[in-house]
């Protein structure tokens, strides 16, 4: 028994020691440098992982900045307690990508009232007084942009604004999903010839996009455009169509336009997607404004900065690909 306890103790200690070896940004920030804490809603989404990487790279260019990320794993109460800890650390800047707009509102106000400048990233919160500035990109305008481009594609394909659309949707409760849908459909509604042939919820995943699209293809022989509300779902739809030899009968449109091998821009280059619309990471702007706030005491940031989406088509994809 004693032996067992010793072994358990050793294992525990080993785990703790190796975990601390993976701790990020644990530099001592007690000297005159700046401490920036980023409270991320959920590291496990590719978009947010890209956001983290971009932040690390951008802040890395400033040797006097210590940058820390906390991961709320899509859990409001976890994010609240992480921000509470952040407040105790008294950083020079707090960036929050709130998991949900209601629950995170109060704690962000607390941080701001304790004298920490708070940048609200991407999603907003209920009370606009509770952040210093909001850096965002609007999913509705992205949906609208996508809708307008799809109308153009339909005119090119069918000679008039007429065609059958399939929507592959993310989780329905998410605001971004509804906005990407409404943005496009508010455009489509202006043309009586454009109709929705089918829609399926594929939960943002490529695998679910593929499976859901297979049945849609069986039941619907005529489809003009598959509008995936993110790139992986659109790619999943493409894979299903390719499996049936129908990938050339329809066009695939995505949203997100992330960089990298698995990102949407590469998929446009590969000819899998006809277009994707970037959902900006907003990190460039956040670092720019954050630096100004920290270093220039006279600087007064605007209440909202909107970062524009970019349309990625075969014409400009190679140029945009990093």
């Amino acid at each position: 028994m004693k032996n067992g306890l010793t072994i358990a103790g050793v294992v525990l200690l080993a785990v703790l020691v190796s975990v601390t070896a993976f701790a990020e940004g644990e530099k001592d920030s007690s000297d005159d440098g700046y401490l920036v804490i980023f409270s991320q809603a959920n590291n496990a989404e590719p978009y947010r992982a890209a956001q983290n990487d971009s932040f690390k790279e951008l802040w890395g260019a400033y040797p006097d900045v210590t940058f820390e990320i906390t991961d709320a794993q899509q859990d409001n109460s976890r994010q609240i307690s992480q921000i509470e800890t952040a407040i105790i650390k008294q950083p020079n800047l707090l960036i929050v990508a709130p998991n949900e707009r209601g629950p995170l509102s109060e704690i962000m106000g607390k941080a701001k009232n304790s004298g920490i400048p708070v940048i609200c990233l991407e999603r907003d919160i209920v009370d606009a007084n509770n952040y210093t500035t909001w850096i965002m990109s609007d999913n509705y305008s992205i949906g609208k942009l996508a809708g307008e481009y799809m109308v153009e594609l339909l005119i090119k394909k069918n000679g008039e604004p007429k065609g059958k659309i399939v929507d592959l949707r993310g989780l329905l409760g998410v605001e971004g999903e509804q906005k990407r849908f409404n943005g496009a459909w508010d455009v489509f509604k202006q043309y009586s010839g454009i109709t929705q042939e089918a829609e399926a919820v594929a939960g943002w995943l490529q695998s679910d996009g593929r499976i859901r699209m297979t049945e849609i293809l069986r039941a619907h022989p005529e489809i003009d455009i598959v509008y995936g509300h993110n790139d992986p779902m659109a790619v999943g739809g493409y894979l299903a169509a390719k499996d049936l030899g129908r990938e050339n009968d329809m066009l695939f449109i995505g949203v997100d336009g992330l960089q990298g091998e698995a990102g949407g821009i590469k998929k446009v280059i590969d000819g899998v997607l006809s277009a994707t619309f970037t959902y900006p990471l907003c990190t460039d702007k956040a670092v720019e404004i954050g630096n100004k706030i920290m270093r220039d005491s006279d600087f007064v940031p605007e209440k909202v900065y909107e970062v524009q989406s970019m349309m990625v088509t075969p014409e400009n994809a190679a140029e945009l690909y990093k």
Binding site: N43, A44, E45, P46, R48, A49, A50, N52, D53, Q206, P232, V235, G260, E261, A262, K266, K267, D270, V272
Partner: peptide, 13 residues
Amino acid sequence: RFLTNNANLDIGF
């Protein structure tokens, strides 16, 4: 997630 740094790894395109 650690292996892939939270990203998707696409294959075969």
